[in-house]
Amino acid sequence: MIETKGAQTSARLAEAMLDLVQRHGYSGTGLNTVLQHAGAPKGSLYFHFPQGKEELGEKAVELAARQFRSLVTDQALASASPIEVVRRVIDTLADLFTDSDFQLGCPVSVVTLEMGAQSERLREACANAFESWIAPVTDQLVAHGRPRPAARATATAVVSMVEGALILSRAQRSTEPLSCAAEALAVLLNDGAEASA
């Protein structure tokens, strides 16, 4: 399906917002900078996002959610076990951090921390993003024999630990927290597998 010029511009604006939020945070990202980064004409922002920065931020969070969910589901299809999925996802995130010289952060956690108490719209978008990551991990664990309630609790812990490790890795400019999270999650997932066997 061929995208219209308008759809392409809208997508470029959301991608630019996402990239800038990852690097500078939501508050540190101005709309003029987004337009410049996207190579979009000035009038296009309010044409595509009439509610301004908040609407554009919501679309950027939704885009980040889709990208990370795709990463998880792609790894789930390519891996034999939940432990392998988690290790591959963490390795991919570590590579992204290293390649960006630790400039990129998780845009969903950034927006949650900056705007979650100020904007119900953005808080809800972030909650939906996290849920979209918990759900496929839950499904993967259920497919490997875990009861759904236990699988969901474990999946929530997995996403929480990875998010925390991303924050520590960025602060320390090191992938060691991600490596530590991978090791701890391997123990958690292995213990859970033994318990459900």
Rank of each mutant, 00 (worst) to 15 (best):
K53W: 04
Q103D: 09
E15M: 13
C106M: 09
V110Q: 05
R66L: 09
P50V: 10
E58A: 14
L35Q: 10
K5M: 04
A184M: 11
L188K: 15
A14Y: 01
L13P: 09
P50H: 08
A94Q: 12
M1N: 12
A155W: 14
T156W: 07
Q75N: 12
A186I: 01
E114P: 09
L31Y: 05
V142L: 02
E183F: 12
G116R: 05
R69F: 00
G192R: 14
A94D: 10
L56F: 04
K42T: 14
E54G: 06
S10L: 03
S160D: 15
L93T: 03
A157C: 14
T9P: 05
E114I: 03
L185S: 00
F68C: 06
V162D: 01
A127V: 09
D99S: 11
Q140C: 02
W133N: 13
A65M: 02
A76W: 07
V108S: 07
P147M: 00
A127S: 11
T154K: 10
L122M: 11
G57H: 11
Q140R: 14
T154Q: 04
A182R: 11
S169H: 03
E183A: 14
T73A: 01
G164A: 01
K5E: 13
A155R: 14
S169P: 05
L96N: 12
A11M: 11
V21I: 04
G43H: 08
A150R: 15
D191L: 04
H144Q: 06
V187R: 12
A11E: 13
C180Y: 14
F49H: 13
S169E: 02
R152V: 07
Q8W: 05
A11I: 01
A7K: 00
A182S: 14
S196D: 15
G6I: 01
D101A: 06
R66G: 07
A193R: 15
S44N: 12
A60E: 11
D139S: 14
P50K: 06
P136K: 01
A186Q: 13
E176N: 12
G164M: 01
A60S: 06
S44Q: 05
H48N: 11
P107L: 05
T9W: 01
N190G: 13
L35M: 07
L56G: 12
R123F: 03
E3V: 10
S119K: 01
A129K: 09
K5Q: 09
S169V: 02
G43E: 08
A181S: 10
P41K: 14
D139M: 06
I167L: 15
K59Q: 13
A64G: 02
S174T: 11
L188I: 03
R87C: 00
R66E: 12
L35H: 04
L45R: 06
K5G: 10
V34A: 06
